[in-house]
């Protein structure tokens, strides 16, 4: 079956396309079939021209103020209109929070299917296969589908971003009627985490994971949560690392127990938390069993500090395991980083 491949992007605040969007375009370009570009945003011409040389046969857009914000109702209406106009059988889109919210609903409207969190696409002649993880990154599947249209949302970092010259394009504007029902929701802005929680740095080079061991009784039989909090926050300050934590540690904070004061559920990595992407990860006071490490699937270099030489990290989960007391090690690490 000849596929019509629609690359679907949305513009950012300044009208540009984000890196992950260009990565999805890179993936779309690698597939055989007729290629169409679809864009949504307040202003789309500039963005369309920036990828004008990508080889698409058509450039479609839904443009206007109601589409400047990330809102399910308007995003679905726009994406649905573009998909229909393009006659798309395969839709490739970046896994942004905006598309992740709306495109599964679009698949439902079109009688198709959506697969999210795609980490790889392979095209073998007429058959298309995608890779994605199940059970919170604990097993990886390769799958294909007969249903069309098939919407695929691609994770970041899976493909090289498309690079090419700006070129003029003929942009086909598709009208979407804005009924009152589409704008019952108003997007009022963005909110950063509370200042004392500003330890999540998605773009940081290093992920620092604090395990529950920090709040346990230490070898003198007492807990040293205050000292742990001080050591960790100092390290985050001097290293500019992002902070991750385990569910149990975060849960404790909701129970009024002695825990690290700057932790919230946003810091949670793994089972019910995020699967962040950082070049390096340093685990402290965490045992490193499989369920602890599922959130580490996309951390490239991994080191751990733990008192147990036989902990999970020692068995192929980390590149280096330091068998030592994290309190002592991190105190020295902080001192050395401060000296630099």
């Amino acid at each position: 079956m000849a596929e019509t491949i629609l690359f679907l992007g949305h513009t950012e605040a300044a009208g540009e396309l984000s890196r992950i969007t260009l990565e999805a375009l890179g993936a779309a370009k690698s597939l055989a079939g007729e290629r169409v570009v679809g864009l949504v945003g307040r202003e789309t011409l500039h963005a369309a021209e920036s990828i004008g040389s990508c080889g698409a046969s058509r450039f479609l857009a839904v443009t206007g103020e109601p589409f400047s914000v990330s809102r399910y109702a308007t995003d679905c209406a726009a994406a649905e209109a573009i998909c229909r106009a393009a006659g798309a059988t395969i839709v490739i889109a970046p896994h942004t929070s905006r598309w992740a919210r709306s495109l599964p609903g679009v698949a439902q409207r079109l009688g198709g299917r959506a697969d999210t969190h795609i980490t790889g696409i392979t095209s073998n002649g007429s058959s298309l296969q995608v890779a994605r993880w199940f059970y919170r990154q604990r097993m990886e599947a390769l799958l294909g589908r007969a249903q069309r249209p098939w919407i695929l949302l691609l994770e970041s970092g899976c493909r090289a971003a498309w690079q090419g010259d700006t070129a003029p394009v003929t942009l086909e504007n598709i009208e979407v009627e804005i009924t009152p029902a589409l704008v019952r929701t108003t997007v009022t802005g963005k909110q950063a985490p509370r200042s004392e929680l500003q330890t999540i740095r998605p773009d940081a080079a290093l992920l620092f994971v604090a395990g529950a061991g920090w709040t346990k009784k230490q070898k003198d039989g007492a807990m040293h949560v205050g000292q742990a909090a001080e050591l960790i926050s100092r390290f985050l300050e001097v290293s500019q690392a992002s902070l991750g934590s385990s569910k149990s540690l975060v849960d404790l904070s909701g129970e009024g127990h002695a825990v690290l004061p700057f932790l919230s559920h946003l810091n949670q990595v793994g089972q019910t938390g995020s699967t962040p992407r950082h070049p390096k990860g340093l685990a402290t006071c965490c045992h490193g069993e499989e369920p602890h490490v599922v959130g580490w699937r996309f951390i490239q270099e991994r080191r751990a500090v733990n008192l147990d030489p036989n902990c999970g990290w020692a068995r192929g989960k980390a590149d280096v395991l330091y068998v030592a007391d994290a309190f002592e090690v991190m105190a020295r690490v902080n001192a050395l980083l401060e000296e630099r």
Partner: peptide, 10 residues
């Protein structure tokens, strides 16, 4: 043959 801690967890 795993450590006691692993027996607890795994």
């Amino acid at each position: 043959l795993v450590t006691h801690q692993d027996a607890l967890l795994v």
